[in-house]
Structures are given as C-alpha cells and as structure tokens.
Design a binder for these strands. Structure first.
Lengths: 224, 224
DNA sequence: TCAATCAATTTTGTATACAATTTAGCCTTA
DNA sequence: TAAGGCTAAATTGTATACAAAATTGATTGA
C-alpha cells in the first residue's frame, strides 16, 4: 500500500467516523506536517477526496470538508435508491450461504455499536453493510459509485441529523429484515425493504429550512 | 476555466473521439511539452482521468489509456442499465416540450454524422444523447456516474467493435423510438426501449475470446 | 549465438523553491 | 468612529530539482 493510500485511508476514516466536521479547512501545510510528507502528496489525496465529493476544493482558497446542501442530500439518497435497487436484484440472485453469514456477523457488530452508543462507529458500520451487499452483487461499477454515495451520506448524517437519535435504532432492524428477504430469495420484498429503508434514512434527516445562510435568520428571528 | 480543465477537456475529447487508442502510453514529460506546462499539472489531469477510469496509472510505470477487459465491458453495460433505468423513469416524469425539441436536434446531428460516416464523432454524439437524458432527469449524481460510464463505453467501442459497422445504424432509430416513448409519457415502454438499446450495444461488441494477451495467440494460431 | 547480468538512461515519485492570489491587520481619512 | 484602501503575512498554484524505480542496451560469459 503506497504512501498516498495510507494517508487517504486515514483521512477517509476520519471523515466517515465524523471526526472531521463539514466545513473544516484542510490546509495543505498543516496536513503535510501531520503526516510528515510534502504538500505534493497531500494535494494528491485532497484531489482524490474532492473527486469523491467528500472534500470541496475552491480554487485559490483551499480544500474544505464538503457541506452538502439539502438538495445534494436528497440527490444522493435518490441516486442510492436507483443504484441499490439494481444491487439488491443481483444480490438476491447471487447471494450464497457464506455471504449471508458474513452479513449476519456485520449485523451483530452494528447492534453492538448501537448498544454501546458509539454513534459514529455505527454510521460507518451501517455504510459497510450496504457496501457488503454491493460487493455480493458482483457489480464493480455500482459498488464504486455506492462507495462514494455512502461516504457522502455519512457527511449528510452529521449535518442534518434530527435531534432524536432514536430514529437510528430502526435501521438495525431494517437491515435484519433485508437479510431475511435475501435469505428467502424474495427479490421484490428485498427491493421494497431497501427502498423504504432509504426513505427512512431521508425522513430521519432535517432537510427542511434552507440551512447555512438562512440559519442565522432562523436563529435571530429576522426575515430573509 | 482553469488551465487544468482546458488540458483535461482536450485529452478527454481525444479519448472520446478515439484519437487516443487503448494502451497508449501517456508520458508526463511528453504531454507537458505538448501543452506547455510542467509535469505537475499533467499529473493532476492524469489522476483525474484515472479516477474516471479512462486512464490507468500503474505505480512507477506511468499512465496509459485504459484497456477495458471483456468483464469490465460487461460490468459497465450492466451498470448503465441500472442507472439509465432510473434516469428514464425520471425523464418521463420531468421532460418538457423544450427538452424534447433539444433531443430531436441532437438526433438530427447523430443522423448527419452517420450519413457522413464520421464514426468516432457519432460515438461521441450518441454518448451526448444519453447524457442529455441524464441532465433532464435532474439527478446530478446519476448524471456524473453516467458520464464516467459513457466515456468508458467509448473506449470499449474502440476495443471491441465488431467488424460489421452496420449494427450501429440501428442505434439512431433506437434513440428515435426512445424519444417517441418519452413524448407519449409511456414510462414502461421508455425503460424497456432503453434496456434493449443497451443490450443491442452489448451484443454489437466482440466480447468473447479473452483479448489482449490471447490476441497474439489467436493471430498466429498457437495454443495458449 | 544466446542468455544473463550490470550499467546507463529514461521515467516516475517526492520535496522544495518561487510566483500568484487571497486573507488579515493596520493605517489613513472622511 | 467607521469605511476604505494599502501593506504584509499566509496559502495555494506551478515549476523545478532531486531521489527512486523501471526500462533499455551493451557487455560478458558460456
């Protein structure tokens, strides 16, 4: 594994585990010192993250952790529905007993992280579950695309999570139901469950009230 | 438009218009001299193209125009089916009269390029048609993903086009039929036409016989 | 003559130096 | 005192220099 990849992985994990909040400035010099490399390699990593849309590079201004707008959030979830429907249909056809066992192991980890209330770890594990399905489906391209969408979803979770974290508990059961549908090879049910699962995720977010700018207006009660 | 983008566009066009064949070595020094910039900016462009999978960067070896394998080709077409089904469903809902007019204009251009037998231009225009549909669908993410898949399809066309170019003529009619289905707001028909269109594309390719390596064996008659 | 090894050249990977742009603070001025 | 502009610091964009790796060609030996 090359140097770039190592640094990329570390930054990517930090993003997924929500240790880097949206909007954080990612200074080339600072990151270079932290990782003990020159700006050259940092720039390479930042460009990669930017292409995956988890980092936003503004010309002559620098790189920042992406701050998805509500529109982008909805777009990501809508794209996930399209792609994960395709994935589910393949998964039902291709899933082996060994695959199901691995999914169940992942589910247990998810439950554990929920019990321990390790929220950000759970978000990452939940994403891994969806990516595991993508891997089972055997479609490399769809898996790559979903990886990007899952990362962005993680950022979206940070920015738009509703106050009641209780909503998240459902998701574990939903994953459980999806496994069951796959086991019984019920394609339509599996797809339907996945679609409503993604709907639930979207509904659990605070995507109303046009954030950022209008935030201040909302807080201080002025009109726009 | 920044310097990177200009060089990127030029190289991207060259790839799409098939002026750069799969496997071509893309030397940093050479490209730097051609475009009158340092290797720094060339590397940036190459990394971007590599992330879009139209260029393959091999560590310590350099960058090459990607040579999709038959498996990758099938994977790309399969992913297109999933994504373009999603796109079609949105297009039928959202397409305006103005959108249809623009699609018809594009169709005319396609026909023209076919008549003039400007094959590579037609491949590019044909891709544009699919991307126009993606734009109409309003899904930014799906449009981005499709852009990547269309570029790769272009490379696949170069590498696996069957000897009889006549197959391509169909595609124009198929695009025509798709427009008609959209006009009559027949979602199922539109989706079905698009699926069979993509099937036809796949069938028009020579994806059998494991290329590249075995090429030489096939040509000179030796056994593997 | 062929194969293998080694040296020289070329090419990529990384660090650094310099240029251009932005940002921030200060000073001037109304 | 506040607004505007100017200078200085910091940061990004690009070029270049140096290090590491791979390719190539030649030389040597069988």
């Amino acid at each position: 594994m090359s140097q770039d990849d190592q640094i990329y992985s570390q930054m990517f994990s930090a993003l997924l585990e929500q240790r880097l909040s949206p909007g954080t400035k990612l200074s080339e010099d600072t990151l270079g010192e932290i990782f003990g490399v020159s700006r050259t390699v940092i720039r390479k990593v930042l460009q990669r993250l930017a292409h995956e849309k988890v980092v936003c590079i503004m010309p002559n201004r620098g790189a920042f952790v992406a701050e998805p707008t509500p529109e982008e959030a909805r777009d990501v979830l809508a794209a996930r529905k399209v792609i994960e429907e395709g994935i589910m249909r393949n998964v039902v056809k291709k899933c082996t007993a060994a695959d199901i066992r691995r999914l169940e192991v992942m589910l247990k980890e998810e439950k554990l992280s929920l019990e321990k209330e390790e929220h950000s770890k759970w978000v990452a594990l939940s994403g891994d579950f969806h990516l595991a399905l993508a891997a089972i489906s055997g479609s490399q391209s769809l898996e790559d695309f979903l990886r990007e969408l899952v990362s962005r979803t993680s950022l979206i979770h940070v920015q738009y999570q509703s106050r009641k974290a209780g909503v998240l508990n459902c998701s574990c059961e939903e994953h459980e139901d999806i496994i069951e549908a796959i086991r019984s090879a019920d394609e339509e049910k599996a797809v339907k469950l996945m679609m409503s699962h993604l709907d639930e995720i979207e509904e659990s977010l605070n995507l109303d009230g046009d954030k950022s700018k209008s935030d201040l207006y909302a807080i201080f009660g002025g009109s726009k």
